[in-house]
């Protein structure tokens, strides 16, 4: 049976493009968007590890089983009827979110084994640990920025004294606070001496890294055995600031060009992916002014359409081709 199931989001362009190729290759494609929770009755049969989705509209049944090839692109299986969400008290909602999330994770993990071929994981997207990834990247042979997580001012001061230019960012994701009244957020920022001076001797644990001076960044999209690399020259590079500061960044977007990974780095990436047990994802590296490759982070469900388009890699074609092969294997 040549059936491919894709778990995705409604507006994901990459999914559209892969499906176009899959149809020309003669595959039968079932796309499940996680926003369409109200459209399905969903049941999970624990014994054999099959998931059944019955469309309430067409009564069509999608069965994810040991016969299907699954690409878990984004989102997750639409398990919770939308109509119930947010109708509960915040405390009950918190409980349900966690409780059902636990089942969704469980299904994700089981399907990895029961489906004929399964690639991508919401579970990995949710539970990715920056410091663990850095640690494993080091083990795979990469250089990593000097990194500490500390709650101690003297330790931080010593770190700052040693490396001079240091940065900080959220431990899990971008720092972001939103309420109805305001919204504030920050990605990566420089930590100044003034900031340190205002800190008490003991504070909330925070991540600090030394600043790597880069020649350029490298973004690698990995899909099974395929690696697609792109170099990104963002300003300022080579110590060169933008020629005309008045110019909008849109007019002079970063240069993004195809890149060939040196063999050792290619091998380190594959090793790292094994360590974190991921078949797909995007990795960000920095090539420092010392010509060394520094591992920054991995995104399990990152976008790849711009890598594909800017470098003319036709990643969508490769993915469809691979999924088709898996169908007939």
């Amino acid at each position: 049976m040549n059936e491919v199931v894709i778990i995705s989001e409604r507006l994901d362009k990459s999914t559209d493009l892969v499906i176009e190729w899959l149809t020309t290759f003669g595959c039968n494609v079932q796309r499940i968007n996680y926003e369409d929770a109200n459209d399905y009755h969903v049941s999970f049969f624990v014994e054999n590890g099959f998931v059944q989705l019955e469309s309430k509209i067409t009564e069509k049944i999608v069965l994810i089983s040991n016969m299907t090839v699954v690409w878990h692109r984004r989102g997750y299986i639409p398990f919770r009827p939308k109509s119930y969400r947010k109708t509960h008290h915040i405390m009950i909602e918190g409980f349900l979110e966690n409780d059902i999330g636990n089942a969704i994770k469980g299904i994700d993990l089981i399907l990895q084994h029961t489906a004929k071929y399964y690639i991508g994981s919401w579970f990995k997207e949710k539970e990715t640990y920056k410091i663990l990834n850095l640690h494993l990247a080091k083990k795979a042979g990469f250089k990593i920025p000097k990194t500490i997580v500390t709650n101690c001012k003297t330790e931080l001061q010593a770190f700052k004294d040693e490396y001079e230019n240091i940065i900080s960012k959220g431990l899990d994701r971008m720092i972001l606070f939103t309420t109805n009244e305001f919204s504030a957020g920050k990605g990566t920022f420089m930590v100044t001496q003034e900031m340190i001076d205002t800190l008490p001797s003991h504070f909330e644990p925070t991540l600090f890294q030394n600043c790597i001076y880069k020649l350029y960044e490298v973004r690698i999209f990995i899909f099974d055995t395929h690696l697609f690399s792109m170099a990104i020259f963002s300003y300022p590079f080579e110590g060169k600031t933008r020629v005309d500061v008045r110019e909008d960044i849109k007019e002079r977007p970063n240069r993004c060009i195809p890149y060939i990974l040196p063999k050792t780095i290619d091998e380190q990436i594959r090793k790292f992916m094994k360590f974190v047990d991921m078949k797909t994802g995007s990795i960000d590296l920095i090539v420092g002014t010392d010509q060394e490759y520094y591992f920054l982070e991995v995104n399990p469900m990152g976008q790849f359409d711009w890598v594909s388009g800017l470098c003319n890699y036709n990643i969508e074609y490769t993915i469809a081709n691979l999924l088709t092969q898996k169908c007939y294997e």
């Binding site: 020629v243 060009i257 195809p258 060939i260 036709n314 074609y317």
Partner: peptide, 26 residues
């Protein structure tokens, strides 16, 4: 150089040209 058409690198062979391959599904 001033207009960002070129850059300098000790590893020029890591930067291949864009492949002139045109593919559409339909």
């Amino acid at each position: 150089y001033a207009n960002d058409f070129i850059f300098f690198t000790k590893t020029p062979n890591l930067f291949p040209p864009i492949k002139m391959e045109y593919k559409t599904a339909f």
